[in-house]
């Protein structure tokens, strides 16, 4: 059974068909690249899979549960977290607080515990802090922990988003253009982080434009074009397909011409 199964997924924005009948699956432990030219529907696919937007038709199954009508928070609690193409950090909070907020759903949520400091409250708070500190270390952000999220560089902000998504203990992580705006050094570090997370058993789906990075990192690719599934399969096979070259690398070929 696949960990994530997307079937016949469609999304309309008014009269625009952003996704039409897209099918793909992601196996546990996989590292999948979701690629396609601008406007192919990659971010829309992420939004519908994570519940940020409702599907027009079709369904999403996660670990055997039909989550099509679940709220984003419910899907996240089942183990599906994400980052955003346009970084959405909590700018008035420190880096550590951002990541701790990411772990909130794992703590007991009792108001009474919090207000009266009932037994277990302090331990739960400490656990959240420990989780956050582990994630900060994992993503190399420990030294920036007390800085305000708004003060960080673009690349660091992207990493805070990943740390925050990790703090929710996901089994499936969706990264929307995690390398956008990063320097080459930062991209290298990101690639290392992503593959080490995957080696630890985390399933990852990422949207990315950089073909070299995708070729080096991903095991499988799902290619979208104009809202439709073009193809999916092993990385080298997919990248060799002429139709993929045409749509995805088309721009580059015309440049050469």
């Amino acid at each position: 059974m696949s960990q994530l199964h997307v079937r016949k997924l469609s999304k309309m924005f008014g009269g625009v068909q952003a996704l039409s009948d897209v099918d793909f699956s992601v196996e546990k432990g996989d590292l999948v690249g979701l690629i396609g030219p601008n406007g192919a529907g990659k971010t829309t696919a992420f939004n519908v899979v994570t519940g940020v937007m409702a599907a027009t038709s079709g369904g999403v199954e996660f670990e055997g549960t039909d989550v099509t009508h679940f709220s984003p928070e419910r899907r996240a609690r089942l183990g599906m977290t994400r980052t955003f193409q346009n970084i959405r950090l909590f700018d008035d909070m420190t880096v550590r607080q951002n990541v701790m907020a990411g772990a909130h759903a794992r703590a007991g949520r009792s108001l009474l515990h919090c207000v009266f400091g009932l037994p277990g409250h302090r331990a739960a708070e400490q656990r959240i802090r420990d989780i956050a500190d582990r994630m900060l270390e994992r993503t190399g952000l420990t030294e920036l922990a007390t800085r305000n999220a708004s003060e960080l560089s673009y690349g660091d902000r992207r990493r805070v988003e990943i740390a925050r998504a990790l703090a929710g203990a996901p089994t499936l992580l969706l990264l929307d253009e995690p390398a956008a705006g990063m320097t080459d050094t930062e991209k290298g570090r990101l690639s290392k982080l992503v593959s080490s997370l995957n080696e630890d058993g985390l399933t990852i789906v990422l949207v990315e434009h950089n073909v070299r990075m995708i070729a080096a990192l991903c095991k499988r690719l799902v290619v979208l074009n104009k809202g439709e599934l073009l193809t999916s399969g092993a990385v080298d096979e997919v990248l060799r397909m002429p139709e993929v070259k045409t749509v995805y690398l088309g721009r580059r070929r015309t440049e050469v011409v």
Binding site: R77, T81, L89, M93
Partner: peptide, 16 residues
Amino acid sequence: LAVRENEMAARCFGID
């Protein structure tokens, strides 16, 4: 505070 800063992002990691 996370909800105040960005409600949808907060919901995407499980905050109700």
